[in-house]
């Protein structure tokens, strides 16, 4: 059953810059999909259209039966509750503790007043600690986020999104600022969440090798158009060159 469907979506920024052109694809529940493509090809725009951080200009986006483009403020909040998001720069509140940042994932489920006051139930706190344990962050729970390393911060970001109990997690370049070993930890966690909890994941990645290793399906984006959408095994070398608009020997993956 498709959880997400893009139908002929266009996005034009400031009536000038064409970011997406006629983008159509569907994602089934429980899939782990990676979008690859050069910088500025519209990968982030696709993710941000899904939770309406960005409004699509044309076309329809259907998430879990709701038409996202026509959603009003209240519906947008419902949609965002069900979609977690992970960012390249983690986007945590650095001056707050790890546990508080994790609990921010509950804000969408709370009344404005109790969210403003930062009042969380014992069950929510217990859940937060369970998630932190799974991600190996129990010792860091009361530390301020600016004391953490990049890899730890990204794990807090993951914990925050799981705390939402989402149907879908959007990962915008989750490992672009991390070293290879932290990157592996993050990718393993994401893949694990997808398999054990059945949460659908859509990722943007720059690393083609990581993408082919972790996901069964790949979407290739060039200048706002989908040029490849299919199983990872069928992704030919030529297609990768086409996606990055380069020829053999010009990509970092060609080295070695």
């Amino acid at each position: 059953m498709p959880i997400l469907e893009f139908r002929n979506v266009d996005k034009i920024y400031n009536k000038m810059t064409q970011a997406l052109t006629d983008v159509s694809f569907t994602v089934d529940e429980g899939e782990f999909v990676t979008i690859i493509g050069p910088s500025g090809s519209g990968k982030s725009t696709i993710l941000r259209c899904i939770n309406r951080l960005v409004d699509a200009t044309k076309g329809e986006i259907v998430f879990d039966g709701h038409n996202i483009n026509r959603a009003d403020k209240k519906e947008i909040r419902q949609i965002r509750k069900k979609t977690g998001m992970i960012f390249q720069h983690y986007n945590l509140v650095d001056r707050l503790s790890v546990i508080e940042n994790v609990l921010h994932g509950r804000l969408g489920h709370k009344s404005t007043i109790s969210g403003v006051a930062g009042h969380y139930s014992e069950r929510e706190k217990e859940n937060a600690f369970i998630i932190l344990e799974k991600l190996g962050l129990t010792e860091q729970a009361y530390k301020r986020c600016d004391e953490l390393s990049g890899g730890q911060k990204q794990r807090v970001g993951i914990a925050r999104s799981i705390m939402q109990e989402p149907r879908l997690i959007l990962c915008d370049e989750p490992i672009a600022s991390l070293d290879p070993s932290s990157s592996k930890i993050i990718m393993d966690h994401l893949s694990n969440i997808n398999q054990t909890m059945g949460i659908t994941c859509i990722l943007n990645l720059h690393q083609v090798d990581v993408a082919t290793k972790y996901s069964k399906r790949i979407i290739g984006l060039t200048q706002g158009r989908i040029v490849y959408d299919g199983p990872t095994e069928d992704l030919a070398k030529e297609t990768i060159y086409e996606i990055y608009q380069s020829s053999e020997g010009e990509l970092i993956t060609d080295v070695g």
Binding site: M85, L92, H104, H109, V116, R160, Q164
Partner: peptide, 11 residues
Amino acid sequence: ALHATGATPLQ
């Protein structure tokens, strides 16, 4: 990030 979790503006 907080907008993306569905937090209200005041939160």
